[in-house]
Every structure is written in C-alpha cells, then in structure tokens.
Design a protein around this nucleic acid. Structure first.
Lengths: 198, 198
DNA sequence: TTGACAAGTAAACGATCGTTTACTAAATAT
DNA sequence: ATATTTAGTAAACGATCGTTTACTTGTCAA
C-alpha cells in the first residue's frame, strides 16, 4: 500500500529529527510504524533511500509553497483589496507565515531539526542546511529588499531574518512554545520602527 | 600518560563535532589517536565518559573565561586608560571577542557544533545548548543592557545577539570564512547606529 | 634484582547493525 | 478457478558496535 510507504517516511522523519540519521536504526523505524524491519525493504531499497525521499519531499513542498505565494497573472486586478497592502505589511505577513511554517508545521519542523543534525557530515548536507535555513533565506530577504529599492538591503535583511533564525532554536528549547512566538512578534514590532518605507 | 588522555578527548571532540555522538565509534576515536580501541579503556571507563569529560572541560573553560573578563577590584584605578572605554566600545569589544571565540578557537567551535548535533536527544542536552548558544547568551546581553539602564533591553539584546548566532551557522557553511567575519563586522557597525548610549 | 604498576595489543564477548532470504497469506489478474 | 503479485513475518547473514579479558612490554620503587 502506498499509504504504508508514507507512514514509514513520516516515522523516519520524526526519529531522524530527534536522534540524527546514525542515531536511528531500521528496527526503530519499523517498530514506530508497527511492523518488522524486513517489511521496510518492500517499500524502500535501503535506509538511505528513506532519507533521500524526505529531502525530495521537502524540495517538492518548497516549490509548491513558492508557487502558491507567487501571485498569478491578473490576480491583482480581480481582487485588488486583498493585495492592497504596503510593502511593510507584506513583509510582516510573509515573516509571520515563515516563522509559523518552521516552528509549527510538523514536516518543516522535523525537516529543519533533521538538517540541523546532519549539516556537518558532508558538503551536500551543509549546502542543504545553508539553502533552507541559513544564508539561503537571508539572501532571499536581501534580494526582496533590493527589489524594493531599500538602502542597505543586506543589513536590513540581517535585522529581519537573524532574530527569526534565533527564535527557531529558542522555540525548540522551550517548554511553553507560545513564549517564543510572542518574543518573535515583539521583534517584528521593533523591526517595523526602523523600516524605511511605509 | 596524562597527555594521552588529553589527546583522546580532543580527537573525540573533533569527531563528535562532525558526526555526532552516535555517528562516532570507539574504534574511530582510537584510530584518530593512533592506538587500538582497547587502550582507550585505560583512560576512560567508557565512551560516554569521554563525552562527559568534554562537557566538564567546557564548563571549566567557561568559568575561567568569565573570571578573566571580570575586572578585579581596584584594577580600574591602577590602569585607568585601558578601561576608559564607553559602554558602546565595551560592548563592541565583547561582541567581537565572543564571535572570535565561537568561530575560530578550536575547542569552542567543536563544542558548539557537537552541542548543535546533540541538542534534541534529551532535556539535558537541550538545556546545555540553550545555556551556551541560544537563550543563555541572549539573556546575558539583555541583563547587561538592563544594568546600563537601557530602554527595551531585551529587544536590543535580540538585535545584537541574533546576528551573531546566525553568522555562527553561516561561518560554518562557508568556504571562505573571512567573508562571514566581515559580514559580522558590518552588522556591528549597523548595530552601533541605533545604540542609544555613547 | 625483583616486583608492582602503567599503558599498550590482540582477540574475543554478546548485542545490535543494515540487509537478504525463504516462506506465508491475502489480494488481484487472467 | 488458477496463477501471479503484493505485503508481510521470522530467521539468518556478515559486519560492526561497545566492552572485557589475557597477555606483553617498559618504568620505576623497594
């Protein structure tokens, strides 16, 4: 069943996110899914293939998400009021959505932690970590500011994204997750005050 | 020999920082040191004891460092010119020293990476990670600003520390490390501009 | 000179690793 | 109705895991 393959992927992701790839055995995954380890090999050719499927899934999720947040042609004309936001409001909404995504959505949260645990193993993992969580988002925000003709776009990008990145980690270590979320909201308020455009 | 015990500790730290605790075997450590794995047990009672020694060493290093940066009584009177810095200059010097410490000193760099890889395994590791790298330094800087009677101390602490934290990760993923260091310096310059005191 | 100790090797321990094989039962297709 | 495929189990594979044991050396004190 195709659903079983999905359950294996999710179970493996949860375990990898906590213990790292080497810290999880094929038996661990099988037990979590509720079958014997031999059965896993009916769905994936080996342990590494499960890991690779997770990465591929994240890439698909990421592309789909990028597509959804790109406005379709003519959408601005059809429902102008929904898009009648200032640049600042757009950036705030984007930041809040991004923070929610990486701290509350199960798959992204687990994927972020998994990548965090694998980033030093080889160049490929390091590149993935940078792309999804470190220099990647930073440069994305900087490009966004550059397109808005904002001065010192990179510096301002650091001021916006660095606290997001820090609060991911603080969120992970908190018993009461809402505290980290509110601290991040206060950061966004503060950021607004030295945002040049309106 | 006591020197052998030290070589084991450093070799293990380097391996743990790259592959995580579970990703390193006792044989790996022994090979790195240049002996057979049985010999390791003449110096440490088991693999976990090596890891624990690393944590203990970091705690000692941290306390010693804190002691060195706490001015001794009367030092201000003896050599006033060395301490004649404004609050802002002190904070900049402190920040630069801290960034160098966690990105260039071998032991702290490896320890930071090792903790990063172990943070999700249990509450103890999570607490250590928060203490050394996430909420710990953030609250330390916030307390420092509070002591200087600065308004919105926590918000300003986020603005100072979050980019440091982000640039640790960017530094890790860079081929040319000096680029990350210069980016961090530019952040410090920008931070100065909305620092209230002189 | 001898005996105790320290630091190493080589080999083996049982446990667990990732993976494969032989087999079973149910579902599906011809 | 029968043959084939699918999805599972149980057991075993060789390799490696962390750890222990038996033994060899060199050092140094009595």
């Amino acid at each position: 069943m195709q659903q079983t393959k999905e359950r294996i992927l999710i179970a493996a992701l949860h375990l990898f996110a906590r213990n790292g790839y080497e810290g999880v055995s094929v038996s661990d995954i099988a037990t979590e899914v509720g079958m014997t380890k031999g059965a896993l090999y009916k769905h994936y050719k080996n342990k590494r293939a499960i890991f690779d499927s997770i990465v591929t899934r994240m890439e698909a999720l990421d592309q789909q998400r990028a597509k959804e947040h790109t406005l379709p042609e003519g959408a601005m004309d059809e429902m102008p009021e929904a898009y009648a936001q200032s640049s600042k409001e757009k950036i705030l909404a984007f930041s809040r959505a991004q923070f929610r995504y990486w701290t509350e959505e199960d798959f992204p949260v687990c994927f972020r932690r998994m990548l965090t645990l694998e980033q030093y193993r080889n160049d490929e993992m390091s590149a993935l970590y940078q792309q999804y969580l470190a220099s990647g988002p930073l440069l994305y925000v900087a490009d966004l500011f550059t397109a808005l003709k904002i001065k010192d776009a990179y510096t301002l990008a650091v001021e916006l994204y660095a606290p997001m990145f820090l609060f991911y980690s603080i969120h992970d270590g908190m018993e009461d997750k809402s505290l980290a979320t509110r601290a991040f909201d206060r950061h966004l308020d503060a950021f607004c005050k030295h945002f040049p455009k309106d």
